[in-house]
Amino acid sequence: MYLFTVLGNLLIIVAISSDSHLHTPMYFFLTNLSFVDICFTSTTVPKMLVNVQAQRKNISYIGCLIQVYFFIIFGGMDNFILTMMAYDRYVAICHPLYYMVIMNPRFCGILVLISWFIMFWVSLLHTLLMRQLTFCVGTEIPHFFCELAEILKLACSDTLINNIVLYVATALLGVLPLTGILFSYSKIVSSLMRISSAGGKYKAFSTCGSHLSVVSLFYGTSLGVYLSSALNHSSLQNSVASVMYILVTPMLNPFIYSLRNKDVKGALRRLLNLATSCLR
Rank of each mutant, 00 (worst) to 15 (best):
C64T: 11
C64Q: 12
L65D: 11
I66E: 10
Q67G: 14
F70M: 03
F71A: 03
F74Y: 00
G75F: 09
G75N: 11
G75R: 10
D78M: 14
N79F: 11
I81E: 02
I81H: 05
L82P: 13
L82Q: 07
T83G: 06
M84C: 02
M85L: 08
Y87S: 02
R89G: 07
R89N: 05
R89C: 04
Y90C: 01
Y90K: 08
Y90N: 10
V91D: 09
V91H: 02
A92R: 14
A92I: 08
A92E: 06
I93H: 05
C94P: 04
H95Y: 13
H95I: 01
P96R: 04
Y98Q: 11
Y98P: 03
Y99N: 02
Y99R: 01
Y99K: 09
Y99V: 03
Y99H: 08
M100L: 12
M100V: 12
V101C: 07
I102Q: 09
N104A: 01
P105K: 07
P105I: 02
G109H: 00
G109F: 09
L111D: 00
V112D: 01
I114L: 08
S115W: 00
F117P: 00
F117Q: 04
I118S: 01
M119P: 11
M119H: 03
M119L: 12
F120V: 00
V122L: 14
S123A: 15
S123Y: 10
L124M: 15
H126G: 10
T127E: 10
L128V: 15
L128E: 07
L128N: 09
L129A: 09
L129Q: 15
M130S: 13
R131G: 11
R131H: 15
Q132K: 07
Q132I: 05
Q132E: 12
L133K: 04
T134Q: 06
F135G: 11
C136N: 03
C136Y: 08
G138N: 13
G138W: 06
E140N: 09
I141S: 04
I141D: 08
I141F: 11
P142Q: 10
H143K: 06
F145M: 13
F145H: 08
F145V: 12
C146P: 14
C146E: 09
I151W: 05
L152G: 14
A155F: 01
A155I: 03
S157M: 01
S157Y: 00
D158R: 06
D158I: 00
D158N: 11
D158Q: 03
D158W: 03
T159S: 06
I161E: 00
I161H: 01
I161V: 08
N162G: 08
N162D: 03
N162L: 12
N163I: 05
N163Y: 13
I164L: 14
V165Y: 07
L166S: 15
Y167S: 13
Y167C: 11
V168E: 00
V168S: 06
A169L: 03
T170H: 05
A171L: 04
